[in-house]
Simulated assay, not measured.
Amino acid sequence: MESEAAMTDSSSSTQVERDDLPGVIRQYLTAHNAGDASASAALMTPEARVTDDGKTYDGLPAIERWLNRAVSEYTYTTTYLGAAQDGPDRWTVTQRLDGNFPGNTIDLRYDFTLDGGLISRLVIAP
């Protein structure tokens, strides 16, 4: 898989197990995968920025609207594929989504940046 190969080839990335991810990332993935928009948003800084599907959402009100739309638009299941630490406060998680969206299956990278124990930036991309 390209995303896993890219993580492995990067000399600045270290592969990690899911249990070794920071708690805030594990909590976010659990809440997001369960469709809990308010619990997901609570794990972000007030000035957080999320980029998903080519669109950027700045601040908690915009992120909460995005989360609510994301959890209601499609039904899907997720499979954890892997993770890497890309820097002191940067982590990448790869998940496979299977659902009723166009294409039915996609592998997505979730690039997290943490600040003060919360998520300050999240980029989701294939």
Rank of each mutant, 00 (worst) to 15 (best):
42 A>E: 10
19 D>H: 06
29 L>M: 09
33 N>I: 04
97 L>S: 14
7 M>D: 10
1 M>Y: 11
45 T>Y: 01
111 D>Q: 09
105 T>K: 09
106 I>A: 13
75 T>I: 10
87 G>Q: 12
111 D>T: 11
83 A>E: 03
47 E>H: 05
28 Y>G: 03
52 D>Q: 10
20 D>G: 08
66 W>Y: 03
108 L>R: 11
85 Q>G: 03
17 E>D: 13
31 A>E: 01
88 P>T: 15
25 I>K: 05
93 V>K: 00
103 G>H: 05
45 T>L: 02
57 Y>A: 01
5 A>K: 15
33 N>D: 13
56 T>D: 07
102 P>H: 07
98 D>A: 12
4 E>Q: 15
12 S>N: 05
47 E>K: 07
11 S>K: 04
35 G>R: 11
80 Y>L: 06
96 R>F: 11
50 V>D: 07
29 L>W: 01
45 T>G: 02
126 P>V: 10
123 V>W: 07
113 T>W: 06
86 D>G: 05
102 P>Q: 08
74 Y>V: 15
99 G>C: 14
68 N>P: 01
107 D>P: 08
88 P>N: 14
120 S>A: 11
123 V>H: 10
50 V>L: 12
57 Y>E: 00
41 A>N: 07
21 L>N: 07
25 I>C: 05
74 Y>Q: 09
57 Y>K: 00
83 A>Y: 03
31 A>Y: 01
90 R>W: 01
89 D>T: 14
25 I>P: 02
46 P>V: 07
85 Q>A: 08
95 Q>M: 12
33 N>C: 05
14 T>P: 01
83 A>C: 00
92 T>Q: 06
19 D>A: 10
36 D>V: 13
39 A>T: 15
43 L>V: 00
67 L>D: 07
69 R>F: 01
122 L>P: 04
107 D>K: 13
101 F>Y: 11
24 V>S: 01
93 V>C: 01
85 Q>I: 09
26 R>M: 05
59 G>C: 05
79 T>D: 04
25 I>D: 04
68 N>R: 12
89 D>V: 09
29 L>K: 05
17 E>C: 08
74 Y>G: 10
116 G>V: 03
15 Q>V: 01
